[in-house]
Design a binder for these strands. Structure first.
Lengths: 210, 210
DNA sequence: TATATTTACGAACGGTCGGTCGGATTGTAG
DNA sequence: CTACAATCCGACCGACCGTTCGTAAATATA
């Protein structure tokens, strides 16, 4: 954007391409993403994409950033409106599952899909995805540490372990949901974490949560 | 095989192809698997593969079966040598993580990779993978139910929830390990489940486990 | 208005993909 | 041995891939 808020040349196209590419990549995979399909879906020419990104890999990296922005706006930001502590940790888990329930992306969790796709394929994309995961775990661990600092965790409870716990339940929920059927697994993921939080926290608002 | 145990014609080739294809598919993805690469890696012709499987999809389905057989031999079977109950549930988790630590497949967990890959892509392969996941969860739930039947779970502990818990920690361990670095996550996954089992079981052998 | 730069396009390129085909080779049964 | 079927191969096909190029339109700058 320019300083006065107007879109610079081509920015509208760039955004539309990224939105479309994110959807297609979440379904077909980040590598299975076809530039032809992206172009056709938007009614633009395939060669025109190379005016914005020098290669497919550059577009793929931009798609990762787009996914992160979407995640920030629709999961992290709403959760940060909840007061810090165990309640906020719970809010992250809850918003996260709500994000999949809402089927914002038809292919499930973009990051999980992409992460497993590039598991064993070194390169810029793998590194970027690994960085995203590291940042995410740092974020969760920070929230757990905040809760500990507020004295909301029972003695002996490891904040990092709690963050790992939240992450594993989230990943497992994402894994089963799109295939086996949504509702039971989502509910299960919520109930499981709530049970665990009740076991490790002294925060009365969690104990009262249903 | 024939009745007297000898290999029938082509069975050696068939097995070698499946082994190679499983390795390549775990790295490049089940769909990213290239028949040319499989053939080249084995020094056979690509067209010869079509004498054994009528299409790429048929080979992909066979690869899934191969992965299941490997999983049965190296994870399930050893765990079943442990007495039933919470100890066996723990053994499954332990053998599972050991399987990834041993890097039997260079690409991490084949089932997790394939599952996320075909998340949102209906068809025979997606259905087969979903079936594998269902069977696996049924297996875990059965083990947890056994433990409950033996009176090893504290009152109020839900066996299905325990099985879900084991699965989520396993998935999360697999997710992080190949990228962020192996040892810490593997150890974390073990410690996390051990803590949880100590909270839900009355079995002294688990309480003594280190 | 005139100029420079970005954006977009159609056409084409080399390469890889899954798959087919006819024929050569191999193993098995009679 | 002969006869038959399974196996394997090289050559080839059409489709799709990411990418490049020359060029035309659109936009910013002067």
């Amino acid at each position: 954007m320019t300083q006065d808020g107007r879109l610079i040349r081509g920015e509208r196209t760039r955004g539309a391409v990224l939105d479309q590419a994110l959807v297609l990549a979440t379904v077909a995979g980040l590598d299975g993403l076809s530039l032809s399909q992206v172009a056709d879906a938007l009614g633009v020419s395939k060669s025109g994409l190379f005016a914005h990104w020098r290669s497919k890999e550059a577009l793929q990296l931009a798609v990762i950033d787009q996914a992160r922005a979407q995640w920030r706006d629709q999961v992290i930001r709403p959760a940060l409106e909840v007061p810090a502590g165990v309640r906020r940790l719970w809010a992250v888990h809850d918003r996260r599952i709500a994000f999949y329930e809402a089927r914002v992306l038809p292919g499930g969790c973009f990051f999980a899909n992409a992460h497993f796709e590039f598991n064993a394929r070194p390169g810029a994309i793998r590194d970027r995805l690994a960085g995203e995961l590291t940042d995410w775990m740092t974020f969760l661990t920070g929230l757990a540490g905040e809760a500990a600092g507020l004295g909301e965790l029972r003695p002996g409870v490891d904040p990092a372990g709690l963050a790992y716990h939240v992450e594993s339940l989230g990943v497992c929920a994402v894994m089963q949901a799109p295939v086996v059927g949504a509702a039971p697994t989502y509910a299960q993921a919520r109930r499981q974490l709530l049970e665990h939080l009740r076991a490790v926290t002294t925060d009365p608002t969690i104990l009262e949560q249903t």
